[in-house]
Amino acid sequence: MTSTNATSELHGILGERLEGGGTWAWAYADVSGNVEDPRRQAALKLRGVEEALRAQGASDEVVDVIAGEFEQEPGVPSPVTRYVLVHDGAVVLSEVLPGHLHGVESVGVGAVPDLVPLVAHRPVDLPFLVVHAGKEGGAFRAYRLGHAPVALDEQQVQGRNDTLHYAKAGTGWKQPHWQQHTEEIWKQNSSETAAAVDEAVRTMRPGLVVVAGDVTARELLVKALSSESHALTSVFPGDPRSDASSKQAFVEHVETALARVVATRRHDLEDLLRTHVGRGDNLAVTGLGSVVAALQQAQGAVVALDAVAIGDRTLLALAGAPWVATAPEQAAGTPVIGPVPAVCALVRAAVLTDAELQLVNAASLPGGVAAAALLRWPVGPAVPA
Rank of each mutant, 00 (worst) to 15 (best):
E219H: 02
S191L: 00
E154D: 08
H165S: 06
E219D: 05
H177C: 11
A151P: 03
F128R: 02
E252V: 14
V130K: 08
H132Y: 07
G207H: 08
N161Y: 00
G137T: 02
K247N: 12
G238H: 10
N189G: 06
I185D: 14
S242Q: 07
H147Q: 05
S246D: 13
K247G: 11
R274L: 12
G134M: 05
N161A: 10
P237M: 09
V235G: 01
R260K: 15
E228D: 12
L145F: 04
Y143H: 14
S245I: 14
K135N: 13
V261Q: 11
A259V: 05
N189A: 07
G134N: 06
S242F: 06
A167S: 04
E219M: 10
H181M: 14
H132W: 13
K135E: 10
R141A: 12
M204F: 01
Q188K: 08
G137D: 02
Y143L: 05
K187G: 11
L232A: 04
H181V: 14
L221H: 02
V150Y: 05
V210K: 00
A217V: 01
A259N: 13
V251T: 15
L220E: 02
G146F: 02
A195K: 12
T233D: 00
M204N: 03
K168L: 01
W173I: 15
K223P: 01
V222I: 00
L221Y: 00
V211L: 09
